[in-house]
């Protein structure tokens, strides 16, 4: 399985929810349809809130993984 293409990374580690979600939403405006963006966050609410944001905005949460140096990475693709 190939690594999803990443067009950018937002490092929101150290920021408390909802700030990482706001960072994601702000950066998402520049993501073209079909492209992805990665969000790094370590707030415990980030996982559920990224998933909920994708559902509410009808965007695709492509993958989630734990980062080697702390926090999690969420890769999100713009569907529309």
């Amino acid at each position: 399985m190939s690594e999803p293409r990443r067009d950018g990374v937002i490092d929101a580690r150290g920021r408390r929810c909802p700030l990482p979600i706001i960072d994601l939403a702000r950066a998402f405006g520049a993501v073209p349809v079909g492209a992805t963006i990665a969000l790094w966050a370590d707030d415990p609410a980030a996982g559920p809130d990224v998933a909920a944001w994708c559902r509410l905005r009808d965007q695709e949460l492509v993958s989630t993984r734990t980062l080697p140096d702390g926090g999690e990475e969420f890769v999100i693709r713009r569907r529309s």
């Binding site: 979600i21 707030d43 609410a45 559920p48 809130d49 909920a52």
Partner: peptide, 17 residues
Amino acid sequence: VLTPSHVLVAMGALTHG
């Protein structure tokens, strides 16, 4: 604690706000 409500997480709901 910093963890969001386990109810909201289990429902897949937005936990902030």
